[in-house]
Design a protein around this nucleic acid. Structure first.
Lengths: 357, 357
DNA sequence: CTGAAAGCGCTAACAC
DNA sequence: GTGTTAGCGCTTTCAG
């Protein structure tokens, strides 16, 4: 789009530079294009420009065109701060997560980010490092920035949800994901923990395994309790002569250690509640040069990335961070749109066959 | 901190609620605390409040205390939009990356996010999906939000850097990381590709391997060219009777396929240029039930996560996304601080011994 | 069809 | 010590 020569002169005459000297450097700051500048250049009023750029019906086609062209030539970008100040709204969503370097959370974030871009929201991502203190600091940051909504995954240790309740008071909707409060009436999206554990247990049962070790995470976490309960139930219901041992481990290293110890007892199937645990067990199995699935079978609950690293690929029940992210976003949109229903959403899940069972 | 009763009454008298009816729900929006509200409650002027809250020496201790207490009680949070509108500054940094679900980028982002929090910046993370179109859209979003600076990793296909050059014109500093422009005088932070490949090659040479296959990525990428050149040089310099074959692969699956084909030729060492390639090769090795390091040695260039998943752990030359992130941030701070030096920074690197060599 | 004016929340120069 | 005022860029009545 080309702009006529005399208009260009006007522009350059209006370009306003300030020279700042900081330290020993000199540099120039260009002021960016504003409605005012366009108005002055064209000899029109600011409100006319504003309306033209929003394609308001009041403005004549001719003026509109002139304005739109100049705005394009000058690369006009509306100042979001001014808009947000005036409208008391803002297009930023906050997201608090223990860490983004994680096979599950990173795909959750990826999904949310995608939706944000589609819906013209910016995403502010904050890490808590699984530390309540940092989590509260992040909540504060979200308040300060007056985010339109907040996605949050609780730190393991967080037991007090007051800060979140106060967010709701100032009309900032909160959608919890993955690790969610066990009380207090909040919007949540979670993996269907019971279903997922049940699917895994049934897969093992269908192969008539008799001596099973189930590796689970921190036994205080809600997620562990749910998965464990459903896992045990499923075996209890259908089969009396199957031996199921439960081991709690809190890290990949610990899983490996217990694997080293327990694999000697010749279990015929291993269940891993999470990717982290799976990686530990797999190291132990590789160390012992055991053959999957001949010597031993494996089933895990996973996002899908880790199981596909091995040969044969590990059979897993899928818990998709990506799908969960999409769900969380639509729940958020509903909240922002004014829904006052408190929703507790869970995703469904499927068994993905590898060659490990 | 407790606020006296009559002040409380004033507050509640001032609390202003709007009732909105959207769809069939009724809900209430609280207006948040502003300087004005505090001023009215206390019968002081807005500027006094502003100064007191900034601990300006002009204000008397008594007034200051009164104001600070009330502000705390009312949970006053300065409106960042107003501040940014006025100061024409903003505390948001943009970050464009092909995808955040990646062993390298996620740790880069984690590092940048950490520094942002320490330095009171918000981080806006955008994904390009390795697509120039989306990348440009993201750049535009950063302009619109008038970010104070932008970290960017080029999409594979991006060859035109005009949009970035224009960012510099409006005084938004850009720091490129990992995939950086091959021309045009930009700030960059990158892994020291030559050094890294040289370290890996020397590690292999020190074990007197004679028949080596090097797996490399897309041969058009700068990163591949650099690593390959240094890799070949190192072998060329020191050893004439070593056979080195080069294979280009563009995905883990392709790496696996070539592994299946070439491992039969009994190479004694394999080099993998990236984690993605390593995962493919490892599947192939597991498939053939080969013994590491007895049957075959492996060395990779990696962030460190993937190599530690296997037993024995894979020996790798470390390219730390985390360190790179820290570096990028300090480079950004320098730019924002007014430095006009164009820096091309590379990280150093080390060999991390696993048991695979 | 177009313009003038008020105001979102905050800061800072300039009074007194 | 404290208050007044102007203005950042934008939208939106209300007047013509």
């Amino acid at each position: 789009m080309i702009v006529s020569a005399n208009v260009c002169e006007n522009i350059s005459a209006n370009v306003c530079c300030e020279k700042n000297v900081k330290k020993r450097f000199t540099f120039i700051t260009m002021t960016s294009t504003t409605l005012k500048k366009i108005a002055q250049t064209l000899g029109l009023s600011i409100s006319t420009i504003s309306r033209a750029l929003k394609n308001h019906p009041d403005i004549s086609q001719k003026t509109k065109q002139k304005i739109v062209e100049l705005a394009a030539a000058l690369e006009y970008e509306p100042n979001v701060n001014a808009i947000q100040l005036r409208s008391k709204k803002n297009n930023v969503l906050g997201l608090i997560v223990p860490t983004i370097s994680n096979y599950f959370y990173d795909s959750f974030i990826a999904a949310v980010e995608e939706e944000c871009r589609k819906n013209n929201y910016a995403l502010m991502i904050l890490q808590s490092g699984d530390n309540s203190e940092a989590e509260f600091q992040n909540i504060k940051l979200c308040r300060q920035n007056r985010v339109s909504g907040l996605f949050s995954c609780l730190s393991t240790e967080t037991k007090n949800y007051d800060a979140y309740a106060r967010l709701k008071e100032v009309d900032i909707p909160v959608v919890f994901f993955d690790k969610v409060p066990d009380e207090g009436n909040f919007n949540t999206v979670t993996v269907a923990d019971r279903l997922v554990a049940r699917l895994a247990a049934n897969a093992i049962l269908s192969k008539h395994k008799k001596n099973i070790i189930g590796f689970f995470g921190n036994e205080n976490l809600l997620i562990t309790k749910k998965r464990l309960a459903a896992f045990k139930e499923t075996f209890g219901e259908k089969n009396k002569d199957t031996k199921v041992s439960i081991v709690y481990v809190s890290s990949a290293a610990e899983a490996e250690m217990f694997g080293d110890k327990l694999l000697g007892k010749k279990p015929d199937a291993i269940f891993c509640m999470s990717d982290e645990i799976l990686t530990g067990i797999m190291k132990s199995i590789q160390k012992k040069k055991m053959n999957i699935p001949k010597d031993i079978s494996i089933v895990a609950i996973s996002n899908g990335f880790i199981p596909k690293l091995y040969y044969p690929e590990i059979t897993y029940v899928e818990t998709s961070g990506y799908k969960l992210g999409k769900l969380a976003f639509s729940s958020m949109l509903a909240c922002i749109g004014g829904s006052t229903f408190v929703q507790e959403i869970t995703t469904d899940s499927i068994l993905v066959e590898g060659g490990s069972l």
